[in-house]
Design a protein around this nucleic acid. Structure first.
Lengths: 334, 334
DNA sequence: CTGAAAGCGCTTACAG
DNA sequence: CTGAAAGCGCTTACAG
């Protein structure tokens, strides 16, 4: 490994001078700089960032933390971040950290191990201790789609999204609505699913309809096949359902639609359905799926931009909550 | 920031002892260990990985490098990697580095800045100098879907995938085939597109058909809308096309199908089409799209596992080329 | 069994 | 304008 000392030796100066010259310090002669740079080039020298960061306390990386990175939700936000990186053209690199369930542990590591200068979390709820740790270390933290008191919260208005979806079903004449929720692998519902359930119930009430626990169906992994199973269960236990709000997302909604089709039940003729997420395929399935779209691209873009502002001291970090409103995309499934 | 010295002070020992105790060195009394660990816990101490890595020369992170991470190709491989991480349950974390075009620069940084112990590249072709640098530093490099002499190459047999797709179209009676290629933003075709073109042409020849440059259409960004445009151009310049091999992938193929539908042209009645990638939506579009599936999940899984083996010294790193065969998934678009 | 010393590769005051 | 020294937070021989 080529170090600063090798360059110093070749250039015939001290390693201090090399360090200074390479960072274009004004206190070094142009002639010395040239000599040093030539030597560095000849040896193909590149500074060890580990060492640099250790002394400077800066890594120039922004950490993006998520449970995993293999679903469309993350993809959309990442697209926004990527766009922001390209247009802003800053010094900052991004690193993606997949926590695979070990959320707080990974977060601690990033902060204490100085793997980044700040983090953006996707659907991860940090513990109060972790938030405290970040604040103590002046590490900005932006949390998308989860609660995080003391950090910057980017909330998606799931309540409202569910409300408008449900209202749309009701306004189109549906009276017996089913709700499909994803309960992940936990005992209780995640934040967004819980809020969607509340929005669903409220819309029902506001239109004089009753919510029945029996019209509620659960899936775990957000798979297409689970949607097929849900429809089977629905046919069996609630054959009179005429509208479905699939809060568990579009992929599950496709499964429901496919199974309905397989049973010769017409959508939207006999049953209407509204999905959530408006992922790409929703415009090309048959029939095109009405769905709630969240401004994920914009969220990614803005989050990255804010983070850069915090890190460059252009904006003061202060716990705030921002709410982004979803939008109902009307197609032909209702 | 809490350092090893703070812990030492609280525990009443030297910082050397703290370091040893925390790593469970056999040369430290159980009693001292307890004392140290209690102190560390009380102060909520976590080692600075930057410092640890600087001295140990190990980061315990595997770098995953891609131009960006927001397409289904990366998603599928990542799924495999994530599964591998969970089942293997190793010490290694993964970090995703988005290069956004600055491929070699990012790769150099990772190696020289010790941001990782080894890398897995997605569709990135490292320069010979970069490969040399990695080899000199004993940094294992696995390259998926691109050429990289001197590294481990994971090749997708694009030639064969294109060949079987084309042959299938011919065997189903199609005689006037069009080819749709993605030429990205470069002057020349990327490796995989070039190979697909060769497979297409060879299949044509082997069945006594001629390849015509006029039956070739290009897109740049792999967008759905480009597929719609391609179909319009096709209608205009080659109205007698009866089969399409969309080497540019399924998303573009959907655009073609939609535009055909909008023009009341029946698929597969009048025109057949085969896509590439077999992304999720292909099974649910109407008609379901016949497509070439690449074993991306498996590739991700195996790549991660090999990397761990290299890093742990269980397997010797030696430049090799592995070829994974694609598979034609038959549906109703032919 | 424990601690003082040297060192990982760098940067930043401080002398000269 | 340049270099010797101290230090970032840690680990690893080496004494004692």
């Amino acid at each position: 490994m080529i170090t600063i000392k090798d360059v110093a030796k070749l250039a015939g100066v001290s390693h201090t001078t090399v360090s200074l010259a390479l960072r274009d310090s004004p206190s070094i002669t142009d002639k010395t700089k040239e000599k040093v740079k030539a030597a560095a080039k000849q040896l193909n020298y590149h500074p060890n960032y580990l060492a640099q960061s250790l002394v400077s306390g800066k890594t120039n990386v922004i950490g993006v933390v998520s449970n995993f990175f293999s679903s469309t939700f993350e993809m959309e936000i990442l697209k926004g971040i990527e766009q922001s990186i390209v247009t802003l053209n800053t010094e900052y690199k991004i690193n993606l950290f997949a926590t695979l369930e070990k959320n707080d542990q990974v977060l601690r590591d990033i902060c204490l191990g100085r793997h980044a200068d700040g983090v953006i979390l996707f659907s991860i709820s940090p513990s109060p201790e972790t938030i405290k740790l970040y604040n103590e270390n002046n590490f900005p933290m932006i949390v998308i789609d989860e609660k995080a008191e003391g950090a910057i919260e980017i909330a998606l208005d799931n309540y409202h999204g569910a409300y408008i979806a449900t209202e749309h079903l009701i306004n189109s004449g549906r009276k017996n609505l089913a709700l499909v929720l994803g309960d992940s692998n936990r005992e209780e519902l995640g934040l967004s699913q819980k809020e969607r359930k509340e929005g669903f119930i409220q819309a029902l009430h506001d239109h004089g309809l009753q919510f029945s626990e029996r019209n509620q169906f659960f899936i775990r992994d957000y798979y297409f096949e689970e949607g097929q199973l849900v429809f089977k269960r629905m046919q069996r236990y609630c054959p009179d359902v005429d509208g479905i709000f699939c809060a568990a997302g579009d992929t599950v909604a496709y499964g429901i639609m496919m199974e309905a089709k397989a049973n010769h039940i017409n959508i939207p003729g006999e049953i209407s359905i509204v999905g959530y997420d408006d992922i790409f395929a929703s415009s090309i399935v048959d029939p095109p799926l009405t769905s709630v779209r969240q401004p994920l691209f914009k969220i990614g873009k803005n989050s990255y931009a804010s983070m850069v502002n915090f890190l460059e001291g252009k904006e003061e970090f202060r716990p705030t909550k921002f709410v982004y409103e979803p939008q109902l995309i009307l197609r032909s499934s209702v």
